[in-house]
Design a binder for these strands. Structure first.
Lengths: 336, 336
DNA sequence: TTGTAGGCGTTATCAG
DNA sequence: CTGATAACGCCTACAA
């Protein structure tokens, strides 16, 4: 009796398949004794309803797809934790997908999800500059989407973000107040999404303090660590900023490495502040000033919104939710 | 035409469902033009085969379950990356589950997987001291399991671990050679699995150097950060070790925090070395000496082994694979 | 309270 | 090369 199923069980118990089904689905129209007998026998024989059959019938998968650019990253892994927490309480499971920031991977995965594989999608996107029609098809299939952190403005869906503009403004202003005259902005892609908003905060803070914006101080980096190291080394040596506002944590780390190697002292020669979810930021040398997004809470919020839509049959109004980041001023950005 | 399916498509195209099915499954028995016509029309109408129906027929889910104690953790998130990389190449997807180190969650999830939800499982376990029969039932269902890092010795399955004993011996010996007379061992649960093996390496290194083992120097911590802080503070003040070998990265961080607060200087007063996958360990103050497991490679290996079993119809011999960790000696453990 | 039967969407088999 | 048909395992009307 290797592959047990509802029919075999029914035969062995001399009972109908419907009754068994009822025993497993919290149906009240069933005799308590019968139910117990079924469950006991099922457990003994290691029977559980087959998910694919159930899902095929119900058109429900009890699965959430989570799409992120990276997994091994403090921000995203904490956000995933938050999503998982909510999903678990609802009896949902997480199908995880990493895009590596490659738009095509995102598209291919989303298309794959087009057919009942997941009941909803939570994603942080990677392809702002592209055509997002592939996402519109999900609507037709009634697969709701919630964006978090990195969103597509042109897609109508629930969105969970942080007050990036304000944080960036505050961080830049902090550097200025602490004495910096030449604050550089580190970014991976200045023309899209997050990099853009954060840059606006940076620019406006400069303007407020009557510091002329200098395009050379916007340092556009890549996703390759070695390349970034070179770019930053060159920038620090040639442009010689006295402050760094980094929109991405790994660029701040790269800055630390470069400074260690070429003998620039943080914060004496250069003050640094960065977006970062690194939990040991206070233990760095020097402790890194950070703008820390509430990653876990963002995950929780995104998942909660998704369940709102799911449970209201897709009729919930789309909303944008902005959570607040926290500014932690530490030694890396404090003047003498 | 909201919910398209193979039958509607067949009707619209005036063609049979079998032909459509063939078009989607790389079947050669189909006219090229027909195939192209089908695929084009399907794309236009946003049709893709329903996964649940396919899986129900094929008894294949193309999904791998990954079970880990935590996600927001450098080691596990890098390992998941490795698993994902391999899975993706095989066209598989990842169902992720976090146990929070709670055995019951592990059991409940594995039981849930008992019915075709996943074709295989990769897990790092949480319940060494318990009954593992729930895992044996997976064998009956032909759902192969691969363990990584934390394994159950009493379950026969492929296992991917690191040379923990050797690394622990080497780390302890390093501290001794650097001048430590009183090396403490930090552990979360000394009696099981990893904590046990690592402790053995520690003890044997002491013995080799004729240092008497002192039970007070084994500092058993918890999963609660605040509790750990208190335990460590007390230990550092009262027992006053001059070296710390930590089997878990977060205990090393806690040590740093305590030392900062009570004015113990690392490495002058206390030398520290720890298992850790933190990528910015060189940037800590002081840079942390680490035993770093090849997390990504372990994930790759585990996934590869799982596919070996899957592709050989479960007939592959079970094997244990031991990868090597790297010892990075940095300032936190170097004498003056 | 329980049983019967049809269908969820797909694909493998077999026949043409 | 294409079509008809019977499963895959389950659940829900509906009937009893």
């Amino acid at each position: 009796m290797d592959n047990i199923n509802i029919k075999k069980l029914a035969k062995e118990l001399n009972i109908s398949t419907s009754t068994i089904s009822r025993a497993f689905n919290g149906n009240t129209d069933i005799n308590k004794d019968t139910k117990e007998r079924i469950l006991a026998y099922a457990k003994q024989h290691n029977y559980l309803p087959n998910h694919y059959a159930s899902n095929l019938r119900d058109k429900k998968s009890n699965t959430l797809a989570v799409i992120v650019p990276e997994i091994a990253n403090d921000f995203f892994s904490q956000a995933i934790n938050g999503i998982e927490e909510v999903a678990r309480k609802k009896g949902f499971y997480i199908l995880l997908y990493r895009t590596d920031d490659v738009f095509e991977k995102e598209v291919s995965f989303v298309n794959y999800l087009n057919n009942g594989k997941a009941d909803g999608i939570i994603m942080s996107v990677s392809g702002e500059a592209n055509d997002h029609n592939y996402l519109r098809q999900l609507e037709k299939k009634h697969v709701p989407v919630v964006f978090f952190d990195r969103v597509y403005e042109d897609i109508e869906a629930a969105k969970v973000t942080t007050n990036d503009y304000d944080s960036s403004f505050a961080a830049t202003e902090h550097l200025i107040k602490t004495g910096c005259k030449k604050v550089a902005y580190l970014v991976v892609n200045k023309s899209i999404s997050i990099g853009k908003v954060r840059m606006q905060g940076y620019m406006d803070a400069l303007a407020r303090h009557k510091i002329a914006f200098d395009d050379n101080l916007v340092i556009d980096c890549s996703n390759d660590e070695k390349v970034n190291y070179k770019i930053l080394k060159k920038a620090l040596q040639e442009i010689r900023p006295d402050g760094i506002f980094s929109s991405v944590e790994r660029l701040a780390f790269a800055t630390y490495y470069v400074c260690n190697d070429i003998g620039i002292s943080i914060p004496n020669d250069l003050k640094v502040i960065s977006f970062s979810s690194l939990r040991v930021a206070p233990l760095l040398s020097p402790p890194l000033s950070t703008i820390t997004q509430p990653a876990y809470e963002m995950g929780v919020k995104a998942a909660t919104l998704l369940f709102d839509v799911l449970e209201n049959n897709g009729n919930t109004p789309k909303k944008e939710h902005v959570l607040k980041s926290k500014l932690f001023i530490r030694k890396s950005s404090i003047g003498e």
